[in-house]
């Protein structure tokens, strides 16, 4: 078994190296500026993710949302009844979280809304916002934060964001609407969805823990 596994991995790496050998040097990239401008973007990656291949992105957002459904479905019954105390009560962490949260939110909004112009986009924005929420949760205690962020309404916002994204997909893909406001809208919706999702995952992972 050990030899077989080793042989499989080595053979795979060898084949990949053999294949890669034929790829270089790389041919030049065809020009893309016109196509990008047609979508109202300057960042070609954003034009693809939110425009030409919005269909892939919609499916990907659904993958993400379904993973969240799974997290909720499996972890909710496992959640402990007793509240989980904050990791640390030190005022320093609380202060730091309070001070940092503002810039984090601003940065996330900036990244989401300018993703079609420069590097950025909804996914990193949402992930950054979600991580900021985790920071806050560490300082304040996950349960207290969870009470402040009412989960059922979060869930409604999340599904609403996905439905809106699907509608936006209809506008862009079926009716061929173009314009930078569509891209900003898509990025903000994706960012919202991802941030809520990141928070849900982290919160459920953190609060449904065992005795230690």
């Amino acid at each position: 078994m050990r030899w077989l596994a080793g042989a499989a991995v080595v053979a795979l790496v060898g084949l990949l190296a053999l294949g890669t050998w034929g790829l270089f040097p790389r041919p030049p990239v065809p020009s893309w500026e016109e196509a990008t401008a047609a979508f109202g973007a300057r960042n070609a990656v954003a034009a693809i993710v939110l425009g030409a291949r919005l269909w892939d992105t919609l499916l990907e957002v659904l993958v993400y949302a379904m993973a969240l459904v799974g997290v909720r479905m499996v972890l909710r019954p496992l959640s402990r009844v007793q509240p989980v105390p904050p990791v640390s009560e030190t005022p320093l962490l609380t202060r730091a979280a309070d001070i940092l949260l503002g810039p984090i939110v601003v940065f996330a909004i900036y990244i989401a809304s300018s993703g079609h112009l420069g590097p950025g986009g909804g996914f990193p924005a949402g992930a950054i916002l979600g991580s900021g929420l985790l920071l806050l949760a560490l300082a304040k205690g996950a349960e207290r934060l969870a009470q402040e962020l009412h989960e059922p309404s979060l869930e409604r916002v999340e599904y609403g964001a996905i439905a809106a994204l699907l509608a936006l997909g209809g506008l862009i893909l079926v009716l061929s609407w173009r314009g930078s406001w569509l891209l900003v809208g898509a990025n903000v919706l994706i960012g919202l969805e991802v941030a809520i999702g990141a928070w849900v995952v982290l919160h459920h992972f953190a609060s449904s823990r065992g005795e230690v």
């Binding site: 065809p30 893309w32 196509a35 047609a38 034009a47 693809i48 425009g51 030409a52 291949r53 919005l54 269909w55 892939d56 862009i172 893909l173 061929s176």
Partner: peptide
Amino acid sequence: VMGGLPWGV
């Protein structure tokens, strides 16, 4: 091609 050329599906 859904989404239009050159990158559409």
